[in-house]
Design a protein around this nucleic acid. Structure first.
Length: 280
DNA sequence: ACGAGCGCCTGTCGGC
DNA sequence: TGCCGACAGGCGCTCG
């Protein structure tokens, strides 16, 4: 599931605190802020990128989760001492639940809390990674700008695009260029901007950069508003998949002009676009 | 500097 | 029905 809007949705889910209603009821939240990690279990060793499995417990036991954040597609948990980072890659998912719940197939790592609940990292394809580090920049340091951040601008996108000469599709998916776009949101952004996925980044005009900038922001904003897209076996209540304009719509009419959406391969990735709205 | 190919993994789907 | 290849929301590596 995980591109920027899906990871943002999970971050908000992990911040969601319990609620006491006016009638005295108690609605448990999914939040983990304030919880203390009691112990950890690693069920698939390669899921842990840093430190070594033997050192994980010592690094995390007794630490409190103080904040939940997101940087690009990384989920960032700030602990009382150090940081716990997750990257969901293709099939990762996170849930918070009572210790009494049954375990699921493909659970890869479990963080047991002192209050008899736990955070579970489930990942069918085993591509996801977890880091428990002292300095988050050791993991996040090479990332490009945050597309929804205040400092990101159309002018910056124009400057960065002209500092390289690459096809737009793989460039936008390059996390050191811009942090957070994956295959879906890149295709959707390029369609809304009216730009061909093979267009060379250094050829963008000011006006085209402006269009691309707003397209990226609009698509991500809508994705977040709809709690992300839910595809295949991962579902968190998001419904952006029902509003795709090009992604996986090959053979269907363009929502703008009615032309048949095409699928090509660019940078080894399936790429969907409208030949009329996105001419080369 | 850039693009292509491949490895890492499991699961689903369509064609024969 | 069963088998087999293509494909899947990502990314790091090597090689031209």
């Amino acid at each position: 599931m995980p591109e920027l809007p899906e990871v943002e949705t999970i971050a908000r889910f992990l911040r969601n605190s319990s609620v006491f209603t006016s009638t005295g009821g108690y609605v448990p939240g999914s939040g983990v802020i304030g919880k203390v990690i009691h112990s950890t279990e690693l069920l698939w060793e390669r899921t842990l990128a840093d430190p070594t499995p033997a050192d994980l417990n010592a690094r995390l036991a007794g630490q409190e989760i103080q904040a939940v954040d997101r940087r690009g597609k990384f989920l960032v948990l700030e602990l009382s001492r150090g940081w716990l980072l997750f990257h969901l890659r293709m099939s990762g998912d996170i849930r918070v639940e009572s210790e009494s719940k049954e375990r699921l197939q493909h659970d890869r790592a479990i963080f047991h809390f002192a209050d008899d609940t736990r955070l579970v990292f489930n990942d069918t394809r085993k591509f996801g990674r977890i880091w428990a580090v002292d300095n988050p920049l050791s993991v996040l340091g090479a990332l490009g700008p945050e597309p929804m951040g205040d400092s990101f601008s159309a002018d910056q996108l124009f400057q960065l695009s002209h500092s390289r000469s690459r096809e737009l599709k793989p460039l936008l998916m390059d996390q050191t260029f811009l942090a957070g776009l994956g295959n879906i949101y890149t295709d959707e952004s390029l369609h809304r901007a009216g730009l061909h996925p093979r267009r060379k980044s250094s050829s963008l005009t000011r006006m085209e950069s402006e269009r691309l900038f707003h397209a990226i922001r609009d698509v991500l904003e809508e994705g977040i508003r709809r709690n992300g897209a839910s595809i295949d076996w991962v579902y968190r209540g998001g419904d952006f998949q029902n509003y795709f304009r090009v992604y996986q719509r090959q053979g269907e009419p363009c929502t703008t002009c009615g032309t048949e959406i095409k699928r090509i391969v660019v940078g080894q990735r399936g790429t969907h676009y409208c030949p009329k709205c996105q001419p080369l």
